[in-house]
Design a protein around this nucleic acid. Structure first.
Lengths: 337, 337
DNA sequence: AATATTTGCGAAAACGTTGTAGTTAATTTT
DNA sequence: AAAATTAACTACAACGTTTTCGCAAATATT
């Protein structure tokens, strides 16, 4: 059964609605005997308060939105899982939205969140997002945002990232130390914060070891799988091919594996590959893939924790805070000397 | 800006609240001139109706819950992605809940959904779920459920599955045809519908080819990774080892890969492996993994479509309907002769 | 010209809560 | 014994919508 509300409970118990409400919230205004009686029958009748009535009164929904560029990606899924666990602990609910890496869709989703459906937002930017007015507007309308991974520097709030510069540097250095002299960098977009930092790390490492950076070696891959495949194939077809490859996202490393399979290019003998990835199967690939693995789960947990903490304090503006977690470079066979 | 409501709009326009409300919903009661004036200023002032006020009036939230046993699994993620796309099209919102394959948590989550927070539920059962009263109660309280993959036969509603029996049969037959005589089956739980059907297919194939079924060859693996590892290791350590292995879920095949790696067992020479999986990296594993791949994305889409269609018609009871999609057996090197 | 209908709008109730401001009756203080 | 306090409860407004009903003025029908 169900759909029992305060009114029905009150009728049943022959007390007023307010009394029932207060008793259930443990108010000291209600005598302990009545309180017990009310609580008991409430349980008996399976009473559960209508969340929307409460939301309407309090302008709080106990719900947050998690906005991610894609879902079919272990990094984001692990982050979501982390956030979900914290949400269940704290009694919050999570609405999931996927921008499919499309700035327009991102804008539209955030617009629809301005009306109080959620109390706050955890998000990672779409790679095509250029303007930040939709983010500012959301915050202006009283809904705080916490960013993770693909953050927006321009906005003052909490941001959870990993040490992308250092990781980019380490990844490149690792390739160099294992004998690479000509290293390509596969990225998604110059807009996104992570990609940029990783590239800077890459360039810095090249510089440190006296390798010159070549713009031709920085390949921007967009969303379409087939176009990426062709771009990478072209990269591996010239007379001067790279002997190392650093992919900023998992998907691009996998595409490279396919290209190498098809072109009979041997990994790691001819090409060494390293990649940002949370793939569980990295150790089982042929060859096993050297990865920089981000603490995605932890990032999701922290993002959620910070958001909830602020929401519970009724803070609608979250102070600037950069939380930087460490990624781990896991050496495997794809970069073996 | 924001937080503008009907009252403020009405004040600004010097008309009544009802007039504004009606105009915005395109009522024929309002003159076209006034209507235009209202719609224009509403847009100007960035009005967006408070969703919870509407929900309270209509007892409809335009929100559904998606309850899955785990998130870090490509099958469920693809299904969620499918559902999310349909939801965005239809103007619905999706709350995500993860049971972590725990019947108690599942129960608790569903209990919390009885109060009208969602209009309907899409779910896949936890493997430990034995009793179905919490499902029945939810439906009794007017919230319809659509099941996908791990369904509950006992409850009358729409269910989206794949042809698990046939797939189980085909998988086993494939192993037999490639020379296996002693095939183990790794499963999660006898409770879950999919597992059961797959096992029946497995047994049927053994029977057809005159191989006798051995209870020792049916290994029940629970959630814990380490225990699974030990169970599989034990399986591969006896004097009489299986020469074929059929895993009902992805995770178990991967664990088997690890076991074989560690024990220097050669796949497919010594052991052939086939597995239900939506892993994108199946072709890149060492060796590439033969899979039965479910149309997860499509399953999510269909589950959502059916649910929304019923909700839009204000149907709170969904008629029994079994939608069975076809899985695909993709032959790769892990089962090569 | 008297009556009936239509058009355009507003008042107010309702959805299920919560919290403020009473209102009794019992108890304590003076 | 009168006044003040406290304890235990209730009435009611409010949150932001939607919708039913009502009402006047304008128009159409006899």
């Amino acid at each position: 059964m169900a759909k029992v509300n305060l009114k029905q409970l009150a009728q049943q118990l022959d007390v007023s609605i307010s009394t029932v409400s207060k008793a259930l919230r443990g108010s000291y205004e209600i005598g302990s005997e009545t309180k017990k009686r009310i609580i008991d029958t409430a349980r008996e009748m399976g009473y559960s308060p209508n969340p929307y009535a409460g939301s309407l009164r309090h302008h709080k929904s106990k719900t947050i939105a998690l906005v991610a560029p894609e879902l079919t990606n272990n990094f984001f899924i692990q982050a979501i899982t982390g956030a979900e666990i914290v949400a269940q602990e704290k009694g919050y609910h999570i609405l999931i939205y996927c921008t499919h890496d499309d700035a327009e869709k991102e804008k539209s989703i955030l617009m629809h969140l301005q009306n109080g459906r959620v109390d706050g937002v955890i998000m990672s930017l779409a790679s095509t997002t250029q303007s930040y007015t939709h983010l500012e507007e959301l915050i202006q309308s009283g809904i705080p945002i916490v960013f993770f991974d693909r953050i927006c520097h321009e906005i003052e709030t909490a941001k959870i990232t990993t040490d992308d510069f250092t990781s980019g540097f380490n990844a490149t250095e690792h390739l160099i130390q294992n004998g690479c002299h000509d290293i390509a960098y596969l990225c998604v977009s110059e807009n996104i914060s992570t990609d940029n930092k990783r590239k800077q790390g890459y360039l810095e490492a090249l510089n440190k070891y006296g390798l010159k950076a070549d713009k031709q070696r920085i390949i921007k891959c967009n969303g379409d799988e087939k176009i990426n495949y062709r771009k990478i194939k072209k990269l591996m077809s010239g007379t001067k091919k790279p002997d190392g490859l650093f992919a900023s996202i998992e998907k691009l490393a996998l595409t490279t594996y396919y290209v190498c399979n098809d072109m009979k290019i041997k990994i790691p003998q001819t090409l060494k590959i390293i990649c940002f990835s949370n793939l569980r199967t990295a150790p089982l690939l042929n060859p096993s893939l050297t990865t920089i693995t981000q603490p995605a789960f932890e990032m999701g947990k922290q993002a959620a924790s910070i958001l909830f903490k602020n929401l519970d304090k009724k803070r609608t503006l979250i102070s600037n805070e950069n939380i930087v977690l460490k990624s781990e470079l896991i050496k495997r066979n794809s970069t073996k000397k």
